[in-house]
């Protein structure tokens, strides 16, 4: 069972950091809604407050890791330019998509949207984490601030969902492949 170095890195970027961020989003929303909505009356313990602060900081770290690995490690592999006369575009995903009229939109709309919309995620969740660390349970006293922070978290899920979906589809039609093979497991001989 082998995987190429570039495939492994793409997996870490998408399935590791990105998917984990998306999973974490629902937890953050539930926690913000259950304990910190302005209408909540139940007392918040210091432990709960500390938990959500840490949770949001981890989410922000995941969002930054996702966009930084995507932009500075995966994207250069995606947009690599083949030498003139190259017939096999397997190692050049962008060129492979652009060479076929039925897949060109995955680049011209899919990747063009993904590469920018993903950057709204770390900005939004870093702000949410900073505001929560500053206000904690007192967020209940600032209903407009609470609603706006929740709005940014919702938009961050949408943006991360768009980027994740497009990333999965792009990798389906033109996988980022190459680099040395990494042996994951040895199978039994037939």
């Amino acid at each position: 069972m082998e995987i190429t170095e570039r495939s492994l890195m793409t997996l870490i970027h998408g399935m590791g950091f990105g998917a984990l961020y998306l999973l974490a989003c629902s937890g953050a929303i539930v926690e913000l809604y259950r304990r910190y909505a302005p209408t909540c009356q139940t007392p918040v313990e210091v432990r709960d407050e500390r938990f959500l602060s840490t949770y949001l900081v981890v989410m922000a770290a995941l969002a930054w890791l996702t966009v930084l690995t995507g932009t500075y490690i995966i994207y250069p592999w995606y947009r690599a330019v083949p030498p003139p006369g190259t017939a096999n575009l397997a190692g050049f995903p962008q060129r492979m998509l652009m060479a076929n009229p039925s897949t060109i939109a995955w680049h011209s709309i899919g990747m063009e949207w993904k590469e920018y919309v993903a950057w709204l995620v770390p900005i939004s969740i870093t702000m949410a984490a900073a505001v929560f660390i500053r206000y904690g349970r007192n967020l209940r006293r600032h209903p407009e601030l609470y609603s706006a922070v929740l709005g940014f978290v919702f938009v961050s899920i949408f943006a991360a969902g768009v980027a994740g979906f497009l990333g999965a589809m792009l990798n389906k039609y033109a996988p980022v492949e190459g680099g040395p093979n990494i042996q994951l497991l040895h199978g039994e001989k037939p």
């Binding site: 702000m127 500053r134 206000y135 601030l145």
Partner: peptide
């Protein structure tokens, strides 16, 4: 709420 407003508008 000034620091919250600042973080929000800056985002």
């Amino acid at each position: 709420n000034g620091d919250g407003a600042a973080a929000l508008l800056a985002a």
